[in-house]
Design a protein around this nucleic acid. Structure first.
Lengths: 210, 210
DNA sequence: TCCCATAACTAAACACTGTTCATTTATTGA
DNA sequence: TCAATAAATGAACAGTGTTTAGTTATGGGA
């Protein structure tokens, strides 16, 4: 049944083409401005054809969102190399914000957009999203063990740190960091991370405090 | 010219009616699901009539957003009563998150939605939005003077703290706090604020650290 | 009181959107 | 070559924001 497999391949290639085209258009104009007809036009098929490969527009967004979670997870793993727990956590946050700012459309889809998460727990996305969250929790735990961090409920601390980097990323993406010139954003992010993590480091704190 | 004034009054009353109706519908169904026709139907006028009072749909959102900024600013001021700078800052953050969670549609409009902020600096909103931000900066400054806080660039710290509470609020509003049951949200928010502010307090830190 | 300029309002249309379905076109195994 | 299956589409539907030409109501001057 080689033919059948080839058919399957072509089918998934078509899905891939639609996804790629959609994402490119999203990157260009923002996803609220992209229509099924736009995507169809770009790949030179009729709008109806897209519905042979995706149930609806939401399924396209949804699939791209999952892609985003995979990408983020891969990106996050780069922070694991560092030995010092606090530095690792710092790098972790930096990597998160970097991902968000370099892939604002993905990030938007994943954490800022409302709509396609309807069922509160989208299990598929949670699975992979949770993997990232577990990574963070492990990191936090190791910081506590190394005593560079006050002992506290790990979930609370992890959620807090996540909120922090998400807050920074999403305010910048939504252009609410208007008190800073655009070219200083990297510096601000760095300083903000230092503010959060370094001030939790007793030695630095004592130093700062004379 | 009493008539002319009455006409003006009626005009602004009509604007008010449209805004109120729009906001009620938004609160009910979320603003992406509300159409001009919905609003028109509710107030029993034709859709075209709305365009006599507002340039377009964006102007309605925009006006409601400004209302939101006013509300937030008023709400924020309640935190000023406390004498202790750190407690005041804590209350400040608490009030911010409370506003966000109690007025999610306003908050969405103000800080999470994309679209109507096109011109990067919307001067009107900035004016009132900036007032809230200045309030925060003053608070931060006073914390530094009281030495409950490490000295650092005030803008960076203010932006950091804002990011923090915005991160918490927006993740909860977008239902990304799925690791916590809904009824525990208030507790989490409280603990998160403590994590951020108390761990910046040397005494508490030393206590925690034994 | 009548008349008419002005203001208030609306029906109908336009150009879009996501989505569906009957129909056509292409492909393939027998 | 032919019937069966798969792939693609044209045309429509119901919905959107917005515009405009046309209707209805109002108020002041004659």
């Amino acid at each position: 049944m080689g033919i059948k497999e080839r058919k399957e391949l072509e089918k998934s290639e078509m899905r891939g083409l639609i996804l790629k085209t959609a994402m490119n258009l999203f990157l260009d104009k923002g996803f609220e401005n992209i229509t099924i007809r736009n995507i169809a036009e770009k790949i030179e098929y009729s709008p109806a054809t897209i519905y042979l490969y995706f149930k609806n527009k939401d399924e396209i967004l949804h699939t791209l969102r999952r892609e985003g979670f995979e990408k983020l997870y891969e990106h996050q793993k780069t922070s694991l190399k560092l030995d010092d727990p606090l530095k690792r956590l710092h790098k972790h946050g930096e990597a998160y914000i970097q991902f968000a700012l370099e892939n604002p459309e993905y990030y938007d889809l994943m954490f800022m957009m409302r709509g396609p998460v309807k069922e509160r727990q989208d299990i598929n996305n949670c699975d992979i999203g949770l993997k990232s969250y577990e990574l963070l929790k492990t990191n936090v735990e190791e910081c506590m063990e190394a005593e560079v961090f006050p002992r506290a409920n790990i979930d609370v601390v992890a959620f807090s740190l996540w909120s922090y980097v998400h807050g920074i990323a999403s305010l910048i993406i939504r252009d609410r960091g208007y008190m800073f010139p655009l070219e200083k954003i990297n510096y601000i992010v760095e300083e903000a991370l230092n503010f959060m993590l370094v001030s939790n480091n007793k030695k630095k704190w004592d130093l700062n405090n004379k």
